[in-house]
């Protein structure tokens, strides 16, 4: 249990829960900034994309006409930061008329498997996500 852990000792399970769409508000971008900084801390990191959060991962985002930087390419860099567990909730996709094919192709290189390229996105059901949530030590919700 984390209550018994020494400061800065063991590794905690960090979940960044993304429930907001990009661009309409800054939360999605600033959440990603937390994830990128947090990657340096060698914790056990997962991201969840739930509710409107799934809209953060759509492919083909083009922000040229709204004058805001397109930050979706930064998700492709997460693998290089050893952030490799992106849980996307199936029900949230379906409710919004999306499928996995509408999402960016996000991959990481698995150092334990001869650097084989593997998908970072893990499609999970709501029930599966509930189980993942229950395992977390720290949940940051955006």
């Amino acid at each position: 249990m984390s209550e018994d852990m020494e400061d800065g000792g063991d590794i905690k399970k960090f979940m960044y829960m993304n429930r907001k769409a990009p661009y309409g508000t800054i939360y999605a971008l600033e959440a990603l900034e937390v994830v990128l900084i947090g990657a340096a801390f060698d914790q056990d990191v997962s991201l969840a994309f739930v509710d409107d959060g799934v809209f953060q991962l759509t492919k083909g985002q083009d922000t040229a006409g709204i004058g805001i930087k397109n930050f979706s390419p930064a998700f492709k860099a997460l693998g290089d930061y050893d952030v490799t567990k992106l849980y996307v909730e199936k029900e949230s996709l379906e409710e919004r008329g999306l499928t996995a094919d509408d999402l960016m192709d996000l991959v990481y290189e698995d150092e334990d498997d001869d650097w084989a390229e593997k998908p970072s996105i893990r499609l999970v059901s709501r029930d599966e996500l509930k189980t993942v949530l229950a395992e977390q030590d720290v949940i940051m919700s955006f």
């Binding site: 400061d7 960090f14 947090g38 340096a40 720290v138 940051m140």
Partner: peptide, 18 residues
Amino acid sequence: SGLGQLIEAGIQADRLVT
């Protein structure tokens, strides 16, 4: 200070309340 202070709070605190 930097965002690292938020991560560090998450690591060091027993509970992080947002």
